[in-house]
C-alpha cells in the first residue's frame, strides 16, 4: 500500500476534442480579426508607410466627428430610455394583467426582432412624413399649406423608429424575469393592502432590475450601431458614426478617415458590449434564461 499512498500523477485525459476550436478560430481570425487589424493599421499609416497618430487627432478633433458622436449618443440614450419604458409597460401588462391573447401578442412583438430594421423607418414616413397620413390629415383639416409636423426628419424620427424596433429586445429578458416572480408574492402583497404602484415599485421592479440592465445595455449597443434606420430616415443633419463611416468610405473614398471613425465606433461599441456581458452575467446569476 505504501507506494499507492504517494499521489500518482494521472495521465492527462486523452481528450483532444478541444482542438476542434482550431478551424472556427482560423476562419474568424482570417475574416474578422485580420480586417480589424488592417483598419487599425490604416488609421496609423493613412495608406503610407509612416506610422503616426496624426490622422487620429485630426479626425477626432473635427467638428464633423464630434457632431456625429453627439448625435449617436443622444439617439442611443433616448431610444434606450424609450425602449425600457415601453418594454416595461408592455411586459407588465402581458405578465401581470393578462388577457386572452396576451401570449400571442408577446410573440407577435417578438417576431419584430426578425424583421429588417428599416421596415419601421419606411413605414413611419407614410405616417409622419411630409406627405404622410398625419400631415395630410392636418393640412386638410386646418387648411394649411405646409405640413405642420416635421419631427420625422430629425433625431426624434430616428429615436421613434429605434424605440419601435428595439423594444422587443427589452421585453424578452423582462418577460423571462417576470415569469419567475411567484404570483403568490403579488397576491400576498395585495392581501396586505399594497396598491399596484407599490407592488410594482417594491416587488416587480427590484426583481426585474437585472433584466432591465441586460436589456438596456443590449439596446444601447444596438442603437449606437444602428445604420439602416438612420439611412432610410435620411435627415440631412442627423449623421451618426456608422452613417459617417459609410459617407466617408463609399461617397468620398476617404478610407483613412472612415477607418479612424470606425475605430472610435468600435471602441464605443466594445465598451457597451462589456457592459452588456456584465449585465447578462448578473442576470444569469439569478438563474434567468431567455437571453441570447
Amino acid at each position: 500500500m505504501a507506494e499507492l499512498s504517494v499521489a500518482v500523477p494521472r495521465r492527462a485525459p486523452r481528450d483532444f476534442a478541444g482542438l476542434w476550436i482550431g478551424p472556427p478560430l482560423l476562419i474568424l481570425a482570417g475574416l474578422f480579426l485580420y480586417p480589424l487589424a488592417l483598419i487599425l493599421r490604416e488609421t496609423l499609416t493613412g495608406g503610407t508607410a509612416v506610422l503616426s497618430l496624426g490622422h487620429f487627432a485630426e479626425v477626432l478633433g473635427s467638428a464633423l466627428f464630434r457632431t456625429a458622436l453627439y448625435h449617436t449618443i443622444i439617439i442611443a440614450l433616448g431610444s434606450t430610455a424609450g425602449c425600457l419604458a415601453l418594454g416595461f409597460v408592455f411586459s407588465l401588462i402581458i405578465a401581470f394583467v393578462p388577457f386572452p391573447g396576451a401570449r400571442l401578442l408577446a410573440r407577435l412583438i417578438d417576431t419584430f426582432i426578425a424583421l429588417p430594421t428599416f421596415l419601421i423607418a419606411l413605414a413611419l414616413t407614410f405616417i409622419y412624413g411630409s406627405a404622410g397620413l398625419l400631415n395630410e390629415g392636418l393640412m386638410r383639416l386646418l387648411h394649411l399649406d405646409l405640413p405642420p409636423i416635421d419631427f420625422l426628419y430629425s433625431q426624434w424620427g430616428v429615436i421613434l423608429s429605434e424605440i419601435t424596433v428595439y423594444t422587443p429586445f427589452v421585453m424578452r429578458p423582462l418577460l423571462a424575469s417576470f415569469s419567475l416572480i411567484e404570483p403568490a408574492q403579488i397576491e400576498v402583497a395585495s392581501s396586505l393592502g399594497a396598491r399596484p404602484f407599490r407592488i410594482i415599485r417594491q416587488i416587480i421592479l427590484p426583481a426585474a432590475l437585472p433584466a432591465l440592465l441586460a436589456g438596456g445595455s443590449l439596446c444601447l449597443l444596438l442603437t449606437v450601431n444602428e445604420f439602416g434606420i438612420v439611412l432610410f430616415i435620411g435627415a440631412k443633419d442627423v449623421i451618426t458614426l456608422p452613417l459617417l463611416i459609410y459617407d466617408k468610405a463609399i461617397q468620398e473614398f476617404d478610407y483613412t478617415t472612415a477607418c479612424v471613425i470606425a475605430v472610435a465606433n468600435i471602441g464605443l461599441s466594445l465598451g457597451l458590449f462589456s457592459l452588456y456581458r456584465l449585465a447578462v452575467s448578473r442576470f444569469e446569476d439569478r438563474r434567468h434564461a431567455g437571453l441570447v
Binding site: L4, A7, V8, R10
Partner: peptide
C-alpha cells in the same frame, strides 16, 4: 478520476480506462 488508488472491475484495472 481518482487522484490516488485503483479501481478494478473483475480482474481489470479500469482506473485509466475511458
Amino acid at each position: 478520476r481518482p487522484t490516488r488508488g485503483r479501481i478494478l472491475i473483475g480482474e481489470r484495472d479500469v482506473t485509466n480506462v475511458p
